[in-house]
């Protein structure tokens, strides 16, 4: 599998504070990689390192296979776009002028793509309005447009939906999905809004105290968070032959309870159990959310 970004035992120390402590992660090409962690666990630090704003204390990372210390990294970074913390733009310039500035920085010969880019992020009708007069949502969209200038194939977005209204979040999600689907752009998105991330991400990386706790695909996460039916019965010994016979996966949790994964036909289950002198006492549907899965990984009651 090709990776847009891989890190290996990456460390970053600020004085006595260890912000990253041997972080290892892999972002597959074409993925929308949700980067999840509590405040201060090193998400933004990692993004700063990858973007070349700071240097790692130890370890290494590769952008599209190019090691961060290689001379070719400058060329590899030309395919990388990022919005780190707040969108970066000149407040006294209009959206179009900011994009023109970025085009020049990238050494792009013609600026024909600017109107299309403005249209893509929905800022085509702003005219000469200066960026300092933009709303937060407009600034986020312009930040994304700046990050998209040129032919980028990897975008890093640090808390991109912070402060956006519901419509803004919806628009942003659709835009990211469109860019991922139509242009094959890989995304690394750090976000606190787990429910929103759950609607977007194809892969996840959970980070805690500067280390990756777990990496998994959306499918694997779905399995980990899969829906289950929690049943209580008078005799759990009757459950295995019945559930095996119905082709269901399950887990006996205690002397009277079990978790059944999938959707059994309840009446058939009741009859089958009754034939073995076992009564179904209660039946409740369970679903673990991304949020609860996250807390089960990193522990604690602090919010992500």
């Amino acid at each position: 599998m090709d990776y847009a970004l891989t890190t290996h035992a990456l460390c970053k120390q600020y004085g006595s504070f260890q912000a990253l402590d041997g972080l290892t992660m892999r972002v597959p090409k074409g993925a929308i990689y949700g980067f999840v962690g509590k405040n201060g666990v090193g998400k933004t630090t990692l993004i700063r390192l990858v973007c070349g704003l700071q240097r790692p204390s130890a370890g290494e990372f590769f952008i599209s296979g190019v090691r961060h210390t290689d001379s070719a990294i400058a060329e590899a970074r030309k395919k990388l776009g990022a919005v780190v913390e707040s969108p970066s733009m000149f407040p006294d310039l209009s959206a179009e002028e900011n994009l023109r500035y970025q085009y020049r920085l990238l050494g792009l010969p013609d600026e024909d793509g600017i109107p299309e880019l403005l249209q893509l992020v929905g800022l085509e009708q702003l005219g000469k309005k200066q960026a300092k007069d933009f709303s937060l949502g407009m600034r986020q969209r312009l930040g994304l447009a700046i990050a998209l200038c040129g032919k980028r194939d990897f975008l890093i977005l640090d808390e991109p939906i912070n402060g956006l209204d519901p419509q803004g979040i919806l628009d942003f999600r659709e835009l990211i999905q469109h860019l991922n689907r139509e242009r094959g752009i890989t995304f690394l998105i750090s976000s606190h809004i787990l429910d929103e991330l759950a609607r977007l991400a194809t892969h996840y990386g959970f980070i805690d105290r500067g280390r990756t706790v777990r990496e998994l695909s959306a499918r694997e996460l779905e399995d980990a968070c899969r829906k289950s039916i929690r049943v209580r019965v008078t005799d759990t010994a009757a459950l295995p032959p019945v559930l095996d016979g119905m082709g269901l996966s399950y887990q006996i949790t205690d002397r009277t309870g079990a978790e059944i994964y999938g959707r059994p036909e309840i009446s058939a289950l009741v009859f089958a159990l009754a034939e073995r002198n076992c009564r179904l006492l209660s039946c409740t549907e369970q679903e673990e959310s991304l949020e609860s899965f996250f807390f089960s990984l990193v522990g604690g009651g602090d919010r992500a």
Binding site: L80, A82, M89
Partner: peptide
């Protein structure tokens, strides 16, 4: 200093300018 405060300096570094 305006490049630092507006964050534009970041855009320069991100796209690989030394």
């Amino acid at each position: 200093a305006a490049e630092f405060s507006s964050g534009v300096i970041r855009n320069k570094c991100i796209i690989g300018h030394r």
